[in-house]
């Protein structure tokens, strides 16, 4: 037992680093994911993750596999696409989802072109699927720093965000914070996607954000436990996923996301608000 679930982390530094990276990602990205799902913006996260690609690729072109350059490029590209699509939605007849889709598709195509003309397939795989087993100190500090900023940011934005989700008209009537809250939240989401892409790659980063959050929704109807369950699920997903990839020689990023996905399917089936409890096993009604 010890050999199977503890020893890999004791013996290998890269496993410990990967686990720390997963912990940081769970603490930062999953609370963001909870709000994304509650605001019906799950696919927005996906779109923004793709939008980051050309920025990261440009950073790579300029400075090679440099953490700073790729991070900066990714943040700039992600924030630009998020702001542009928000702006287009507010000033033209286009809805936010369609303008975001348009911008991220353009952005993604540009990114793949940049990577494929100048780099090798190995580089493309690195950006798309990450390198959780090769996180260096700088990358771990980056991911942990993003998690810290995210938690403080969410603490400040918490009340306006909840109000914006539940009753946007009310927030606008009592405060001018509505757009500030909206855009700050999008920026935090971009930060976390950039942090996630170093570990899990642009394609998988959004998985650690959305899957645990979506799964937690089947277990509780209150926001605070929703965030706690989501974070726990994300971290356990990272831990189990790393073990799976170690023992079965699977690529680690997809293994982590698959574990989170399995928890989602389990929650969908067996959670108190899941399919089985609500439809297949009706309970006797209460007296009052």
């Amino acid at each position: 037992m010890y050999d199977a679930v503890i020893a890999p982390f004791v013996e290998f530094g890269f496993m410990r680093r990967a686990l720390v990276g997963c912990l940081a990602l769970s603490l930062g990205a999953t609370p963001i994911g909870v709000f994304l799902t509650l605001r019906r913006m799950s696919l927005t996260g996906d779109a923004m993750a793709h939008a980051i690609l050309p920025g990261a690729a440009l950073g790579y072109l300029v400075a090679g596999l440099s953490l700073g350059a790729m991070t900066l490029g990714g943040v700039i590209a992600g924030v630009t696409v998020a702001m542009l699509s928000g702006l287009v939605a507010r000033t033209t007849v286009a809805r936010e989802d369609s303008s975001l889709a348009a911008f991220y598709l353009i952005s993604l195509a540009v990114g793949v072109v940049i990577v494929s003309t100048r780099g090798s397939n190995v580089d493309l795989l690195h950006i798309l699927f990450g390198t959780v087993l090769a996180l260096n100190d700088a990358a771990i500090y980056l991911v942990a720093g993003i998690a810290t900023v995210t938690l403080f940011g969410l603490a400040v934005l918490y009340r306006p965000l909840v109000m914006e989700c539940f009753d946007p008209g009310f927030l606008r009537s009592v405060s001018s914070l509505s757009p500030v809250g909206h855009y700050s939240f999008l920026v935090l989401a971009v930060f976390n996607l950039v942090g996630g892409f170093h570990a899990l790659g642009t394609l998988m980063a959004v998985g650690i954000m959305i899957l645990p959050a979506a799964a937690a929704r089947f277990w509780t109807r209150d926001l605070t436990p929703l965030v706690v369950i989501g974070v726990l699920a994300a971290f356990v997903g990272g831990y189990v996923g790393l073990l799976l990839s170690y023992h079965a020689s699977l690529p680690s990023g997809p293994a982590i996301i698959l574990t989170a996905g399995a928890f989602y399917l389990f929650s969908l089936s067996f959670g108190p608000d899941g399919v089985i409890m609500t439809h297949l096993r009706p309970r006797r009604h209460l007296e009052a």
């Binding site: 509650l38 400040v156 009340r159 109000m163 989700c165 539940f166 009753d167 405060s175 109807r221």
Partner: peptide, 28 residues
């Protein structure tokens, strides 16, 4: 607001909804 403009499926308690009324004193 009209009831239709509110997301009633949002996971929030009655207490928290009513507490929003104190925004002017409590703020963010």
């Amino acid at each position: 607001p009209q009831q239709a403009e509110i997301d009633w499926s949002f996971p929030i308690s009655v207490f928290d909804v009513v507490a929003m009324g104190l925004w002017r004193q409590r703020g963010a």
